[in-house]
Design a protein around this nucleic acid. Structure first.
Lengths: 216, 216
DNA sequence: TAGATTGTTAATCGATTAACAATC
DNA sequence: TAGATTGTTAATCGATTAACAATC
């Protein structure tokens, strides 16, 4: 049981990156990979890679490296990609619609059961084959269908309120696309996608690089 | 000139959060704010907040706190929200389309000039009022229109190739939505939005919380 | 002035990297 | 066996937090 010591968030956030890389290696029929080769390809320190992977158990072999397929399936297991989740989307605007389509096409394991809206004109219609239900039925629906994850795609004003409702309805994770900080009780996981924030940071970096060039 | 010492990325990534909070305070007609009140409301350590803000100069006043409007406009300036950027989107699929609409509605300062596609059926049409041009004209277009930012919304296979083309065409920043690591030369800024990665991390956290509950 | 709150230094904590012994 | 590469300890680096003097 190597997993007793809590794994830091920094490590977890690198796992999907390893996973993407391993998927690519597998597609190229590579059988083995060393931390030093990996280091070059994905621009992470080799020590760090070995340390990260070792958090979950000794997947490697001295003198050989790591088996691509074994490592890939271990990361799959750690990230829970072998499990499946029930998902609802709140808000049927641009982002909500894009996410429904995205899930339909690509994401196994995350089943979008329903979209919730307050706009009466949308209620009863379908978006990419997924039904739209009125928001006031969300608690009932989530309880009945054992929903794991709520995706918040509403305007920022309603984000916290929706989060509270979701948590009340027994949801365990929130994927938040609203440009607002949502606070939840311990034991509930929140992942934020703050598009604005990211764009602002990009803007900042651009101006920094400009300064650096003017300085030369 | 306090900005000589390089500001860490961790600090920069908190600025949009401060900014969101200040916008909200301003909407509520709050004139002043202390680091301790802020700390409670956005769940960050008060020392950290003071330290972060002080990276850019002494915006506060002992015994009083910070002026909401002054602090907000300082952060605006630091993040470059007073500037404006020329943007192109590469890939007119779900995500590309959602982003065009998003920018039309909400984002001042980021002007989407053109969408690029390889799908001949889309070329020449418009998405939410923005024209679609064939990808093979992208270099010419970017050079002619002084494009600052390229948004990659293509499948992962073409992401690196597109990034290389963009950099070759003089672009300074990349907003990457493709689930792939893009590597660029120094001086080019990249911001990644890896939706899959974020969802995987959410899945991981869910299973951790489950474990914790079983342990009780 | 007294009270409040910043700006800043010092202490702590955690994450990254280097180094190397273990071992395939 | 010799060479390669991991797993792991030790060293470094950077970020966070606590404490408090400065000052409004």
């Amino acid at each position: 049981m190597q997993e007793t010591e809590r794994i830091s968030e920094a490590v977890i956030r690198r796992l999907p990156r390893y996973y993407r890389y391993l998927t690519q290696l597998e597609a190229n029929n590579e059988e083995r990979i060393s931390s030093s080769k990996m280091s070059k390809d994905i621009a992470l320190n080799a020590s760090q890679i070995r340390r990260d992977l070792n958090c979950f158990g000794g997947f490697g072999q001295q003198g050989y490296g790591y088996s691509v397929s074994k490592l890939k399936s271990e990361i799959e297991r750690i990230l829970g990609l072998d499990r499946s989740y029930n998902v609802v989307i709140i808000g049927g605007g641009n982002m909500g619609q894009a996410l429904v389509k995205y899930h339909k096409n690509a994401k196994k394991g995350f089943n979008v059961l329903m979209i919730f809206e307050t706009d009466e004109k949308m209620v009863g219609t379908k978006v990419a084959g997924t039904e739209v239900m009125h928001l006031h039925d969300i608690t009932m629906f989530c309880e009945k269908n054992q929903v794991d994850i709520g995706v918040i795609c509403t305007p920022k004003e309603s984000a916290q309120e929706i989060a509270d409702v979701l948590v009340g309805a027994g949801i365990k994770g929130i994927w938040n696309f609203a440009p607002a900080t949502v606070l939840v009780r311990e034991g509930i996981a929140v992942e934020n996608i703050h598009l604005n924030d990211s764009l602002y940071v990009l803007g900042y970096k651009l101006s920094q690089d400009e300064d650096a060039e003017n300085f030369l």
